[in-house]
Amino acid sequence: MLDVLNISMPMLFGQLTLGLINGAFYALLSLGLAVIFGLLNVVNFVHGTQYMLGALFAWMLLHYLGIPYWGALLLAPVGVGLVGAVIEVTLLRRLYSVDHLYGMLLTFGLVLIIEGFFRWLYGASGMPYSNPLPGGTNLGFMFAPNYRLWVVVFSVAVCFGVWYLIERTKLGSYLRAAIERPDLVQAFGINVPRMITLTYAFGAALAGLAGVLAAPIYQVNPLMGSNLIIVVFAVVVIGGMGSIMGAIVTGFGLGIIEGLTKMIYSEASNTIIFVIMAIVLLIKPAGLFGSQK
């Protein structure tokens, strides 16, 4: 059947790998978006920009300080998380008592500020970031580039790590409870304002981590986040923001679908996720894993 479509097996697996990688980024970003929205009621428009910052920080660490990829994998997300904490404490905190739309508008403003600044500093063209794991591995059915394998394996591990943290640990139970009733959790003696700051920083750091992973694949570009975030919004609408596992499954699934579309009918690869979103909205408005709020 694949022969009819004029698709070779290596090409199929190649696109599947790329689809998985994009899916991993969708999953990591929609995870953070869902957790932030759950606790802060803020649609974090600047999430894509925080992904971009992760990649950019990795590039800067290498370029200015000579710190290689493996160091950046730790340091860049921490940096993005710190920037996130500052944003929460200085700006977002004032908006919790007003309409949720204002949080979205504020973070949209932050997108313009951060992207505009780095476009001014570095221009809009991509800056290459060298592959830390050159070469490839023969998996029998395909020859896979090592770095892409690493991204798939590592991001799956991170996703499930986050799932475990939120669904199975004491810390996660504080988070789940605070999403339901922050006032009551605080009345039990837990410092909820600090928890909110840390949660926002954590979500931002996850996006930053995805950015570091993306740097060797997509180059580093101040604009790399803003187009991604719109797709991630669609992913979130499709999956519904209620479930962590839902976000992971939807993210990876849509990445794969997008990869396959690129192969079968590449003109539609940019729009396929939006089309799926429209269909899901018409059939199940709350999203695949969501409950209508």
């Binding site: 700006l91 908006l95 204002y102 949209f108 403003g109 932050l110 313009l112 500020i113 001014w120």
Partner: peptide, 18 residues
């Protein structure tokens, strides 16, 4: 001012919302 237009618009957003 080129890219600074974006930055200034962003700052305007943040100030208005806050």
């Amino acid at each position: 001012f080129g890219e600074w237009v974006l930055v200034i618009q962003g700052v305007t957003f943040v100030i208005m919302v806050s």
